[in-house]
């Protein structure tokens, strides 16, 4: 083999460092880091900044590992969906074997290091999260049931609970409510996306709700889940992590979110196609802001407690 033919043959498979980073789903990782940080800061026990930083890093790497395992398992359907076709494996930048090896090594590594840096409860929760996302959601549910998102949403809901466990070494009502907030938020968020990305999921044979049950049923589901979400999202106001600022903010956000879900429920497919799914896209965009602002409010309440300022004190019912 001449040098020229060797380099030409190798060019196809020579992976850059950035390709490995992309394998860890950095955008998902950002949300994981943020919610885990909020869980850590909202906890009543102070954590040394170095331990906190190292622990958040472990949680982020664990989330990245499950992302790599998900990309390894879903490489066949990623190749036929326009949203995922440019991912590292379908685009040929990373081989499936490499993705599997990176996913497994980082998964074990992040759990062991979190156990050493923080405590066994946090490490156990991280291990369960990785297992849940890579095995329960990706391998068992995603291609088998239209309820994939409902149950699979748990994987994305664990980070604030892990952050809380890093600080306290336990699970409590506050961390369960933060978990429930993301858990119940996930279905309407993804179903809104699925309404205007229906073709993608149909092509890949992923049984998303609009593909299996139709868009009318999906619109009903979005409304019901959004109404269910409201009391769960407002409930933390009456725990030790909440307060009047959280209550006011959450009520406003939930009113806007419920109004958006109601507007989606009122529409038919013809109307939605007529304005290119404007309402659905706006609802999807707002859902990201909705979740982000809820965690910002928890952070604000934690900050107010540190400085000892409480505009109106609410009863702690839970």
């Amino acid at each position: 083999m001449t040098e020229a033919s060797w380099t030409d043959a190798a060019r196809e498979h020579e992976t850059e460092f950035g390709d490995y980073v992309e394998l860890l789903k950095p955008r998902v990782m950002r949300l994981v880091i943020f919610t885990a940080l909020v869980g850590l800061f909202a906890a009543p026990v102070a954590t040394h900044p170095v331990i906190g930083f190292a622990s958040i890093l472990c949680i982020a790497v664990g989330a990245g590992a499950s992302g790599a395992l998900n990309m390894w398992w879903d490489r066949d359907i990623d190749a036929v969906m326009s949203r995922t076709v440019s991912r590292p494996i379908p685009s040929g930048r990373v081989s499936p074997g490499e993705a599997l090896a990176i996913g497994l090594v980082l998964a074990v590594f992040s759990v062991v290091m979190l156990g050493l840096f923080a405590n066994p409860v946090a490490a156990g929760l991280l291990a369960f999260t990785i297992f849940f996302y890579a095995v329960v959601y990706s391998m068992w549910l995603k291609r088998a049931t239209p309820q994939n998102i409902v149950i699979g949403g748990a994987a994305g809901a664990f980070p604030p609970m892990i952050g809380w466990a890093v600080a306290t070494g336990s699970v409590s009502i506050e961390s369960v409510l933060m978990f429930a907030l993301i858990f119940i938020w996930t279905p309407p968020h993804f179903w809104a996306l699925a309404l205007f990305r229906n073709d993608d999921y149909s092509r890949a044979n992923v049984p998303m709700l609009p593909v299996v049950a139709g868009t009318r049923s999906t619109r009903n589901h979005i409304l019901v889940y959004t109404l269910l979400l409201a009391p769960i999202a407002i409930a933390p106001a009456f725990t030790s992590i909440g307060g009047s600022v959280y209550l006011v903010g959450s009520v406003v956000l939930n009113a806007i979110f419920c109004f958006g879900a109601w507007k989606i429920w009122c529409r038919t497919d013809d109307v939605a196609a007529g304005d290119r799914f404007q309402v659905e896209k706006r609802f999807f965009g707002f859902s990201i802001l909705y979740l982000f602002l809820h965690f910002v409010l928890i952070l604000v309440e934690a900050g107010l407690r540190v400085v000892g300022f409480a505009p109106v004190s609410l009863p702690v019912l839970m």
Partner: peptide, 30 residues
Amino acid sequence: EIFGRRKSRNVGLGLVLGAFVLIVFAVTVV
């Protein structure tokens, strides 16, 4: 071009390993 890609991979991995050593050291001290 292939050497550039390889270099980016090696430098990236080196920085990750260096950061890992620093974090373990810092946590141990704490």
